[in-house]
Design a protein around this nucleic acid. Structure first.
Lengths: 206, 206, 206, 206
DNA sequence: GATGAATGAGATTTCATTCAT
DNA sequence: GATGAATGAAATCTCATTCAT
């Protein structure tokens, strides 16, 4: 039976080493399909032994999710302040929208890594991998917006989130896929307007 | 749709056998992660030998893409008539939208299979796997809609397609993920309205 | 649950390959301690893949015991005819004694390999590794000798066998250990006389 | 007996600790194959740290041999007095023979531990592990016996020792193997008689 | 068309041994 | 004295893929 103490927690890992691993994980898990990646590459890339990786992460999957955790944490850092800012739902949503696009433009490798994690996550039973740091505040924002009469209430909140997520995900995916040509942030006025029209309460004018 | 050169002529394969393979591929590639699927399972499931699979498909990837091809062909069969129907862009788009939601509601295993294919496709250089049967007519519809002043022109046509795709993809994904509870088609009025507001030319009222 | 059919029986293995493996097993399992031997060495030495070894033998232990089986089979081939020959117990025993010494002089690597197997066998619960091909006929000979009043009956038959085994084993071991200097067969008259005096019925004169 | 240079001075080790280690070594190295024993088990069993073991013993092998050293020292303590006693070669040999059987009957775990050490010793070049405390006096006894015309001279002294050793070793091994059923000491009259007949000068009557 | 065998690669685990604290 | 972390090596297993029959 596993108890928390059985899991060598990551805080015991040397911080420098951890940074090296996080970077290598991004580098490699963004470059190739999960099943064509050997942990030995990661180990060598991060200059640690295979066993160190197994000791602290336990498995290839866990290593990927841990790396994802780190990078989504970075995203959260940039994105969450906008959700807590002053201003109405639209302003907050716009701030979030822009920061997400900006983040992925500046970190184009994160999306391919997410593709690898998404792939695994599709069949995970214990959706422990839900990143509430990002999705909970987002859900709260949508909830507020609906209470304030600014967002649609003819569909469930989950559907609103799906539109948000689906659009952002596909935009970024396309962007990365095309070799990052035309900037997304540069046209974010129009892009956000499209999103806003989708989720705003139908009578909302502005 | 796969290029002819990629495959050793599937037409030579016994049609019955092929059907069995297509079904097994859907069954298994929707059930588990690509890398946790053994080709023997497929072979046994379809009652063919491993070598038959290799002879006609060439690789695990090609097998998946071929299966996907079949199922997207089924989708195209249901969806394309709506694009060619009489009526304006909105009507056509709505028809397509509904038929897509309906298709995935009736074939819930196709989306997980797509997740497996999407995963592989992320890093494919030769994007031979683009399914023009579906996307070309769609692009044409959007083009027409823009010419007719019905759809936005402040973003590229690709962006419009991305919104369409991103929303549909995420809706279906959520639907399948949640164990297919609340129907999508049942609320397609609102769902399509949201999409339409996103892509319609801003001045469009109805 | 394993059934006999689950075990890829060795007869399905290509005879040439098997010979190469048997030879390599002797070569390597006689050269070093069991735990310092890597199966990869055996694989390379026999020019087969690691998986082939695992497929046919199942484990490092099984590989060793299988090799031992082969070499003890060779020993049995030389030794058993003497046990079945005409003549009294003493003549038969002498024939066996000499053929054993001769065998190990001609195949000095077999004893170190036996040391490795003996080591493992010490703790084996299922002493499946008992080589009845050799020990059963030997026991029968001792039994006959006792019935004929030629061998001691004041100790159990097992004890007689222990003296036989213990003496032969140590003689060969010493011989191999010392770098195979002074021949054993050359002095087998005296060596056998010592053994015979030990096991013969006390009143036996000759 | 190990050469001083092989060990980092065991005398500096706390005597209590050393006793605990010696006992644990016997316990564990008699229970399982050398390569399936983890040094942590020993460390935990003796309540010392892994590093203490490494500091004082240097390696897993050295630890085993050191433990063996201790237990063979115990054997020597019981056995040597008989060799130095008054009486002729036969009496002395008999005393030694009985004390050896007795020792292993009272300490049945020592033989399996010896099996582990023997295994390692087979390939050791520097046969530092020869235990002259036991073998030198024994050789001296045999030498005396030959000078006195009591022991065979038609084979080398080494051969005599081999018979002695081979017989004792196999008797004890069998005894331990069979779960220590029928006592050896109880039948030592016959057992020794067999040995004596083997090694005694052929003309010796009694 | 198919069947059986072989291979290379990589996941995962366990451990002796070494280092730094 | 001891404790914790890191490493290299090897056992074992599973698979995609290739070959020969």
């Amino acid at each position: 039976m596993l108890t928390a103490t059985d899991l060598p927690d990551l805080t015991r890992l040397d911080p420098d080493t951890r940074v090296r691993i996080d970077n290598t994980v991004l580098e490699i898990f963004s470059a190739r399909e999960f099943h064509r990646i050997g942990l030995i590459e990661i180990a060598r890339g991060a200059n640690v032994s295979l066993q160190t990786i197994y000791k602290y992460y336990g498995s290839k999957e866990a290593l990927l999710f841990s790396g994802l955790d780190f990078w989504l944490g970075q995203l959260a850092l940039e994105m969450l302040p906008h959700l807590g800012s002053s201003g109405d739902t639209k302003v907050k949503l716009r701030g979030m929208f822009d920061s997400v696009l900006g983040f992925f433009e500046r970190n184009p490798k994160v999306m391919p890594m997410i593709m690898n994690a998404l792939y695994l996550n599709t069949w995970k039973q214990n959706k422990a991998y839900r990143y509430p740091d990002i999705f909970d505040p987002l859900a709260r924002l949508l909830s507020e917006g609906r209470s304030a009469g600014l967002l649609r209430t003819d569909v469930s909140e989950g559907i609103l989130l799906d539109y948000l997520q689906g659009i952002l995900f596909r935009l970024v995916q396309s962007y990365v896929d095309k070799g990052t040509q035309e900037s997304l942030t540069a046209q974010s006025d129009a892009l956000f307007d499209m999103l806003w029209r989708a989720v705003a309460a139908p009578n909302t004018t502005s």
